[in-house]
Nucleic acid binder design. Structure first.
Length: 259
DNA sequence: ATGACAGCGAGGCGCTGA
């Protein structure tokens, strides 16, 4: 089965891209971030017509996440257990596969704006709470995927300018320690299980011809629990829709699992 | 230090994103 994550930067603005991409890439699961719409605006019928079930956690204007799945979803959780959050940033669900159940946690991680800011402090608190939730989820679900827009470059090679951007947002030691702490729970970066081209990124700034110059960051990730690693067959970033007219600034990331 | 894009909700620009 194939599982994908894509920050669409408004599902209203990107619905046709999502539908077109799904026709070309009929993945089993597509996790979306930055819906920027309330639940009542979610285009459930058109996605059902495309064959997908959906679990949605929307929000007007900002944030919002959803899990689309060919298989029905159950045991849906919204936001981080035990963490009061005004933002809709996390949705978790269980799917049944031929090989057994699979837990999926889809996150739109906090941006953080600038180290030292109140938003950065919120990002750190949010990451602390997320880690506790993932720890508990892993204890309950051996086969688990944590994916989404992490807003963290795990390593220097995940940035177009690691020296110039050192200790700026997405590049700080603190953020990278949080990423590593998630890995230390027993997760593996699916993308790095496989040989990848240098300068592989998943986001490019709209400004200053960022995409054309490949000035990007790899901040969208798919982490696999140890039990899933033997099933991993590949992981790619699909840059194709980033070249479409009026694109999201993020590209989809797709993992192929032999499940 | 600032702005460059884009989307949103206003409301004829400001906020946020990364």
């Amino acid at each position: 089965m194939r599982i994908a994550t894509w920050n669409v930067n408004s599902l209203t603005a990107r619905l046709q891209h999502v539908l077109d991409w799904l026709i070309a890439n009929p993945v089993d699961v597509l996790c979306l971030q930055e819906l920027k719409m309330s639940d009542d605006k979610f285009p459930l019928e058109v996605l059902q017509s495309a064959g997908y079930h959906a679990a949605v956690f929307g929000q007007k204007t900002y944030n919002g996440v959803a899990i689309l799945s060919l298989a029905p979803v159950r045991d849906v959780l919204r936001n981080i257990t035990g963490f009061e959050d005004a933002h809709s940033r996390v949705i978790a669900a269980t799917l049944d596969t031929p090989a057994g159940e699979l837990r999926v946690i889809n996150g739109y991680f906090v941006n953080g704006q600038e180290p030292g800011s109140e938003k950065f402090a919120y990002k750190m608190r949010w990451l602390d709470s997320l880690r506790q939730m993932v720890r508990d989820e892993l204890a309950a679900h051996e086969r688990l995927v944590l994916l989404g827009d992490f807003n963290i470059t795990p390593e220097d090679r995940d940035s177009y300018d690691p020296e110039g951007l050192r200790e700026t947002i997405h590049h700080t030691t603190e953020e990278r320690q949080h990423f590593q702490a998630l890995i230390d729970l027993g997760l593996v970066d699916g993308f790095r299980l496989f040989e990848q081209p240098e300068k592989s990124f998943s986001w490019w700034d709209y400004r200053m011809l960022g995409y054309q110059k490949n000035r990007g960051l790899r901040i969208d990730h798919i982490l696999l629990s140890q039990a899933l690693v033997p099933a991993a067959r590949g992981c790619i970033i699909d840059r194709v829709p980033r070249k479409w007219e009026k694109p999201s600034d993020h590209a989809p990331v797709v993992v192929d699992l032999a499940l």
